[in-house]
Simulated scan of single mutants.
Amino acid sequence: MEYKVIPFVASVSQNKIASKQVAEQLEEIIKYHANSGWQYIRLESVTTFVRPESGCFGLGGTPGYTTSRQMVVFSKTS
């Protein structure tokens, strides 16, 4: 079994219903990869810690933070 994981970042405009736009974008990704033989498994949320940057001589540094990314998981039988 092969697996493929791709990032999913929805892009919405203010003049439409956001949840509908997100659903349509996810559907397009699923259809696109299904046409290549990949089967959709699930949408997975991955939490990541971004390390702080100290900057130059302590100036301009940024604190670390936690962020979440959405990943679309597909599988294919070899």
Results as ranks from 00 to 15, higher is better:
Gly60Glu: 00
Gln25Met: 11
Phe74Asp: 00
Lys4Asp: 12
Lys31Glu: 14
Gln21Tyr: 04
Leu43Asn: 14
Val5Tyr: 08
Val73Met: 02
Ile17Tyr: 02
Gly55Glu: 03
Pro7Lys: 14
Trp38Tyr: 13
Ile30Gln: 04
Met1Asn: 01
Met71Phe: 14
Ser19Ala: 13
Leu43Cys: 07
Cys56Thr: 08
Ile17Lys: 06
Phe57Asp: 12
Glu24Leu: 11
Val5Ala: 06
Thr48Ala: 08
Pro7His: 15
Glu53Cys: 04
Val12Pro: 04
Ile17Glu: 11
Val73Trp: 00
Glu53Ile: 03
Glu2Trp: 10
Lys16Gly: 06
Ala10Tyr: 03
Ala34Ile: 02
His33Asp: 09
Arg51His: 08
Gln70Tyr: 10
Glu24Met: 03
Pro52Trp: 08
Val12Lys: 15
Lys20Val: 04
Tyr65Phe: 09
Gln39His: 07
Val12Leu: 07
Arg42Leu: 04
Ile30His: 00
Tyr32Gly: 05
Gly58Glu: 08
Gln39Thr: 09
Ser19Gln: 15
Glu27Met: 03
His33Thr: 07
Ala23Val: 00
Lys20Pro: 00
Met71Asn: 13
Phe74Ala: 03
Gly58Ile: 14
Ile41Ser: 01
Ala34Tyr: 07
Tyr32Asn: 13
Ser75Thr: 14
Tyr65His: 07
Gln14Asp: 15
Arg51Leu: 10
Gly37Asp: 03
Ser54Ala: 05
Gly58Ala: 04
Pro63Gly: 11
Gly55Leu: 12
Met71Ile: 06
Thr47Arg: 11
Gly60Ala: 03
Ser13Gly: 15
Val73Gln: 03
Gln21Asp: 05
Met71Ala: 12
His33Tyr: 15
Val72Met: 12
Tyr40His: 09
Val73Glu: 00
Gln70Thr: 01
Val5Gly: 06
Tyr32Glu: 15
Ser75Asn: 08
Phe49Gly: 04
Tyr32Gln: 15
Phe49Ala: 14
Phe74Gly: 06
Ile29Ala: 10
Ser68His: 11
Thr48Cys: 11
Glu2Asn: 09
Leu59Arg: 10
Ser75Arg: 09
Ile6Arg: 05
Cys56Asp: 04
Pro52Asp: 04
Gln21Met: 02
Thr66Arg: 14
Tyr40Gly: 00
Glu28Phe: 06
Cys56Lys: 06
Asn35Leu: 13
Ile41Lys: 13
Lys4Thr: 12
Lys16Leu: 05
Lys31Leu: 10
Gly60Met: 02
Glu24Lys: 03
Thr67His: 07
Ala34Asp: 06
Ser78Asn: 02
Thr48Met: 07
Ser45Asp: 06
Thr67Ser: 08
Arg42Met: 11
Ile6Val: 15
Glu28Cys: 02
Gly64Ile: 09
Ser54Phe: 01
Phe49Ile: 07
Tyr32Pro: 01
Tyr65Lys: 06
Arg69Phe: 12
Val12Asp: 10
Gln70Ala: 09
Arg69Met: 05
Thr66Ile: 11
Ala10Ile: 07
Gly64Gln: 09
Tyr40Ala: 07
Thr62Cys: 05
